[in-house]
């Protein structure tokens, strides 16, 4: 029982992070029909941005105890940073290729990814060593069931991730800009003729996706405290799993990405807890194969569902 609960906690925590990151992949795919390979590097930027900012704030302010609001401030700073970078990437790298074949955009995305990785590795930027983020959320245990401790940090993480996802869902399905996003995703030309400012909507989507990536990176850094260097293989794997989550849920589908993220988190954690820990990545990618074989459009993906 202890093991089950502990694994469930872990699975939900990590699954919600996958979901946050998967949303970025799925939104960009929904609108531009290409996979933004640079997305996982924006997550890295979010994690490192939070780390650098939190350290800087602690150093300059010299608090004896970290104020409770610092976490929120750091998160907003990371979101602004990543949103700006996401905006610039779209403007400078992808927009000039709007009419180019999709493969060109795809290759450009890989180029952007490499550029961000290697810039991050410069000593003047983040460097090549792992670093640890200051404690922004108190190290408190909220409840304890048997051996299972429910940590403040996990609850805050889960709550932040879920509220952001609900917020996004509301934004996409209940607001005007959300309707514009769905229109562009359905058919950009027609949406343009109807007076939807297509370029602005695309920019907005990128900024939104990058902000969610920033949140993912921030929560990741908080959860694991040590942040690996920007080009670490762990980040690539994280990006790949989030991408698998998007595909499993149905790429282009916002709710699908959330579902896919949680599904992958559960599968990975329960698989390694009850079957074998040496195969934890195998479960994830096997699920991808199974989904592609039997339901290529993903769990929630189908032509009838509105895409974003």
């Amino acid at each position: 029982m202890d093991q089950f609960l502990q694994t469930l906690m872990g699975a939900l925590a990590i699954g919600s992070l996958y979901a946050l990151i998967a949303l970025g992949y799925t939104m960009v795919y929904g609108i531009l029909k290409f996979i933004n390979f640079a997305h996982s590097d924006v997550v890295v930027l979010g994690a490192w941005g939070s780390l650098v900012f939190a350290r800087w704030a602690e150093r300059t302010a010299g608090w004896s105890q970290t104020p409770w609001y610092l976490g929120g401030v750091v998160l907003i700073a990371a979101m602004v940073l990543c949103g700006t970078v996401g905006f610039l990437v779209e403007r400078l790298a992808y927009k000039p290729l709007r009419r180019a074949p999709r493969i060109n955009v795809l290759i450009t995305a890989i180029g952007v990814s490499l550029f961000l990785q290697n810039t991050g590795q410069l000593e003047a930027v983040f460097g090549t060593r792992p670093a640890s983020i200051p404690r922004l959320v108190g190290d408190r245990t909220i409840a304890q069931i048997g051996l299972v401790k429910i940590e403040m940090l996990d609850v805050v993480g889960l709550f932040t991730a879920l509220s952001f996802m609900l917020g996004l869902d509301w934004l996409v399905f209940r607001t005007k800009i959300g309707r514009a996003m769905r229109a562009v995703s359905f058919n950009p030309q027609t949406a343009g003729l109807m007076g939807v400012p297509v370029d602005r909507v695309i920019s907005f989507t990128f900024v939104l996706g990058s902000m969610l990536a920033a949140t993912g990176g921030f929560l990741w850094a908080l959860k694991y405290s040590q942040v690996n260097q920007p080009a670490d293989t762990g980040w690539t794997l994280l990006g790949l799993k989030a991408f698998v989550a998007a595909v499993v849920g149905g790429i282009g589908n916002v709710r699908g990405a959330m579902l896919g993220g949680l599904a992958i988190g559960l599968l990975e954690q329960f698989g390694s807890a009850y079957l074998s820990s040496s195969l934890s990545d195998v479960y994830v990618f096997s699920l991808l194969i199974v989904v592609l074989l039997f339901r290529p459009s993903g769990i929630l993906g189908s032509t009838a569902v509105e895409k974003v």
Partner: peptide, 8 residues
């Protein structure tokens, strides 16, 4: 190598 979550 590179894994972050060792909970399981």
């Amino acid at each position: 190598k590179g894994a972050s979550d060792f909970n399981a």
